[in-house]
């Protein structure tokens, strides 16, 4: 038996509506600390929506209504007194397509620390180096920090985006299909990076790719039509799914 870890994110009775559409139905999840949790499921099943409700990125969507509670480190983030910017600083996000800012590589990584008030140049340089090392891309980029981030390859851009998320020193890293726009080799590198990140951060990753989930995730949640059908250790889910629908999906009968 594995040692039970502390739960970092706890989702309780989460319901989410886009206008009339009931996008998330009664979600309950306990996501342990310093592990990789994967959300899988067919398109439109609500897995990305659920991910975004963890750092309240859904607030940006018009007509979006949320009921229920999400606790991060035992604090309800949907409490009206929550400071959303502090929350997002604690839960960094990496998006589906690499989206570096139109700035230099250095400025990209330093963006987060700067908006959170770090002005000292020495300290910024330190943070940038640490973050780029954390994203395993320091050796590639250390000589071209002043160059535009757009000159990088897709895989490098995505790792830069991960470094940018690391620079704000989050506890949780949310990844929304981080490899779906990348080639197999870049994907492999990002996956290696994720297992590396697992040591220090709680990683939650949405993925379309079930092999990816088996390769990297400790726990997996299967979403279908806005509901969590099954949530358990990755190994046991893929070896012996408890629900018929999960089995149908992971054996490729639909989705």
């Amino acid at each position: 038996m594995k040692k039970e870890k502390k739960n970092k994110v706890v989702i309780e009775n989460l319901n989410l509506f886009y206008g009339e559409h009931h996008a998330l139905k009664n979600i309950n999840l306990k996501i342990p600390e310093k592990e990789i949790t994967a959300f899988i499921g067919p398109s439109g099943c609500g897995k990305s929506t659920c991910l975004k409700s963890i750092n309240r990125m859904n607030d940006l969507v018009d007509n979006c209504r949320i009921e229920g509670k999400v606790f991060i480190s035992d604090e309800n983030i949907y409490d009206p007194r929550t400071d959303v910017t502090l929350l997002r600083k604690c839960a960094g996000m990496v998006f589906q397509t690499p989206n570096p800012f139109p700035m230099s590589i250095f400025d990209n990584v330093a963006y987060g620390p700067r908006i959170h008030g770090v002005k000292d140049k020495k300290k910024l340089e330190e943070i940038v180096e640490r973050s780029l090392r954390g994203a395993a891309i320091w050796d590639d980029l250390k000589d071209k920090l002043k160059k535009s981030a757009f000159g990088l390859s897709g895989g490098q851009q995505q790792r830069l985006c991960i470094a940018r998320a690391l620079a704000i020193e989050p506890d949780i890293i949310l990844m929304d299909e981080p490899t779906s726009a990348l080639d197999p080799i870049s994907t492999l590198k990002i996956e290696d990076l994720m297992t590396e990140l697992r040591k220090k951060y709680t990683v939650i990753v949405v993925t379309h790719n079930m092999q990816q989930a088996t390769r990297i995730a400790d726990k997996t949640a299967f979403f279908l039509m806005g509901e969590v059908i099954e949530y358990s250790d990755t190994e046991s889910m893929f070896r012996k799914p408890a629900d018929k629908r999960t089995e149908n999906y992971i054996t490729g009968r639909f989705g």
């Binding site: 998006f95 989206n99 139109p102 987060g112 908006i115 998320a165």
Partner: peptide, 14 residues
Amino acid sequence: PKSYKEASLGLGAT
């Protein structure tokens, strides 16, 4: 692109 805004907000910018 909306992705710039999302990235910035996702990093905790107002």
